[in-house]
C-alpha cells in the first residue's frame, strides 16, 4: 500500500479533456476574469508606483515604477496560480465532487493533478500577459527581452500551482488556506524584492529570501524588463523547476493518501 502511494507519477495526455472542462467554465466569466487580471496590477502600480515613486526617485538604478513593475508581474502570477490551486482546486475536489465524477472514467488521479497544475499555470500565464500589456502601455519597458516574461509567467504559475496543491491536499476546509496566505504567501511577497531590493533586508532575512521561489522569479524578471540578460539564469530557472517537481510529487502522494480513504 505504501509503495503505491509513493509510486512515481504516471503521465499521459488524458489531462487535456479536464483542461478543456476548466476552460469551458472560465469562458462563461472570461470578461470579469480578464478585467480582474488587468485592474489589480494597474491599481498597485499606479498607486504605489506614483505615490511612493514620487518620494523615491531611483531604485536599483531605475525609476521606482519600473522597479515595481517586475515585482508586480511575478506576484500577480504567483497569486493567480495560488488562488486557483487552493480555492478552485478545493471546490473541484471536495465541494462539487468534480474529481469524483472524473475518476469514474478512464482518467486517473495522476492525470487530474497534472491538469490542476497546468490549468492554474494557464491562468498565471493570462495574468502575467495582462500585467505585461499594462507595462508596455505605460511605457515601462520597451525591450524585446520583455517577451521572455511570458514563458516566465508560465513557469512561476507551474511552481506556485504545484506548491499550492500541497495545501489543497491537506486542507480540511477553506479556512485552512488562511495559514498558507498569512505564513507563506504574504512573507514571501515582502521578502522577495517585490517592493524594495532584497539587499535592504538584514543578512539573516537575505538568506531566507535566497531560498524563496519568488525571489528567483524576480531575479529573472527585473533584468529582462530592463533589457538585460539575468545573471545566474540557469540557477534561477532550476530552482523554480525544482519547486515545481517537489510540489507536484508531494501533492500527488498526499492526494493519493487522502482519496484512498
Amino acid at each position: 500500500m505504501k509503495s503505491q502511494l509513493l509510486a512515481l507519477p504516471h503521465l499521459s495526455l488524458r489531462f487535456i479533456p479536464i483542461w478543456r472542462r476548466h476552460f469551458l467554465v472560465w469562458k462563461t466569466m472570461a470578461v470579469t476574469s480578464i478585467l480582474g487580471h488587468l485592474a489589480d496590477p494597474i491599481i498597485y502600480m499606479l498607486g504605489l508606483g506614483y505615490g511612493l515613486g514620487s518620494m523615491l526617485p531611483q531604485m536599483g538604478g531605475t525609476s521606482y515604477l519600473v522597479f515595481l513593475a517586475a515585482g508586480t508581474i511575478c506576484y500577480s502570477t504567483m497569486n493567480s496560480a495560488t488562488f486557483e490551486a487552493l480555492y478552485s482546486g478545493f471546490a473541484r475536489m471536495h465541494e462539487q465532487r468534480t474529481w469524483e465524477a472524473i475518476l469514474n472514467t478512464p482518467i486517473t488521479l495522476d492525470d487530474i493533478v497534472v491538469s490542476e497544475i497546468l490549468w492554474a499555470a494557464s491562468k498565471s500565464l493570462l495574468s502575467g500577459l495582462a500585467v505585461l500589456v499594462v507595462i508596455w502601455m505605460l511605457g515601462l519597458s520597451s525591450s524585446i527581452l520583455s517577451l521572455w516574461l511570458i514563458p516566465l509567467s508560465l513557469l512561476v504559475g507551474l511552481c506556485f500551482a504545484a506548491l499550492g496543491l500541497i495545501m489543497t491536499a491537506l486542507a480540511p476546509s477553506y479556512y485552512f488556506f488562511m495559514y498558507y496566505f498569512t505564513l507563506v504567501i504574504t512573507p514571501m511577497m515582502l521578502l522577495s524584492g517585490v517592493f524594495f531590493p532584497v539587499e535592504q533586508l538584514p543578512p539573516m532575512l537575505q538568506i531566507v529570501a535566497a531560498i524563496l521561489p519568488l525571489s528567483h522569479a524576480i531575479d529573472l524578471a527585473r533584468p529582462l524588463l530592463n533589457g538585460l540578460l539575468p545573471s545566474a539564469m540557469l540557477l534561477h530557472i532550476s530552482v523554480l523547476a525544482a519547486y515545481t517537481v517537489f510540489g507536484f510529487y508531494t501533492s500527488l502522494v498526499l492526494f493519493r493518501r487522502r482519496l484512498s480513504q
Partner: peptide, 9 residues
Amino acid sequence: PQMDNLDPD
C-alpha cells in the same frame, strides 16, 4: 454515483 456530481456551471 450516490451523490450528484454534475457540473453546476
